[in-house]
Write a protein that binds this DNA or RNA. Structure first.
Lengths: 151, 151
DNA sequence: ATAAAATTGAAAATGATTTTCATTTTCAAT
DNA sequence: ATTGAAAATGAAAATCATTTTCAATTTTAT
């Protein structure tokens, strides 16, 4: 993460205007630990600035996603959820543990070494076998969280 | 896979009626190599039997998914896609390679040994660390397929 | 054969996301 | 600082996958 305003520079480089609304949304994404949906982001943004509409939230999320600064996930609860890129947000490489009952999502950073070895080997092999230009991967575990496992 | 009619027995065991419509949908799932969406299944089913409606397709897919016989995936193209369980359909354990440009999905079965080692270790560790009762995992690679990589 | 329970299709409802369009804001060039 | 074209905006309408409702039909246990 260059500095707090890394994104202003990137928007400019891509010919995208800097606006109060986009600043608000990016700040929300930078300051959350959860996996917010567009509507959840809208609710927070709208409290800070009554003039922000849901449409602009969707549009900003799309722009950031297309620039690769943001990642869009579907965890199975019907709405897309977003996370700033690890590099952009200065976070460790992680994946998710998803509770199929309450939809709780845990970010985990364990077993990165094993993961890296496995992913590198698979990626290299699959690229060759299927002539695929691999850009990213996803690993996810599903099950019952602490609170839901006994119910 | 017990035999061709494995599912009749399972439905009965779960108090679910056996109907022509369900038979048609299950046959379609058994005979496809692709990752069909509800609408695609409906189109095929409807050709075979004009009285089948889209609603019943959704309902049957839900039932099979809840019984664990079918798996529901979201690959990012806006509609859920379905695959019969590997055991049920006598297929090898596999994961997916997804083209982010044309949405092509490749099932791959390579590096299973490495995967099993990595997944087992992670699953055991994560279960303990997060007190999670892990039931399944997903591994997926995103990138550009053979046809899209040069465009 | 029969009646209660389960299933069905069509149409309506839902809910997330996208599009439209008239208005407002941004930004580069003055 | 001013300005005007281009980009961004909110509200409302449109879209589209999925779910619900409900009256009619089919299945199943008897």
């Amino acid at each position: 993460m260059p500095n707090k305003n890394w994104w202003k520079e990137i928007l400019k480089q891509n010919g995208i205007s800097f606006t109060k609304i986009r600043e608000t949304i990016i700040n929300i994404l930078q300051n959350t630990e959860s996996h917010l949906s567009a509507k959840e982001i809208y609710i927070i943004a709208h409290k800070k600035n009554k003039s922000i509409g849901l449409t602009s939230v969707y549009r900003t999320l799309d722009i950031l996603t297309k620039l690769g600064l943001l990642h869009k996930f579907e965890f199975g609860d019907g709405e897309a959820r977003y996370e700033l890129d690890e590099k952009v947000n200065n976070k460790s490489h992680h994946h998710h543990l998803v509770c199929v009952r309450c939809n709780k999502i845990i970010d985990y950073t364990d077993f990165v070494k094993d993961e890296t070895d496995f992913i590198n080997k698979s990626e290299k092999g699959l690229s060759k076998i299927y002539n695929f230009d691999i850009k990213g991967h996803m690993i996810r575990f599903y099950g019952f969280c602490e609170k839901c496992r006994d119910k």
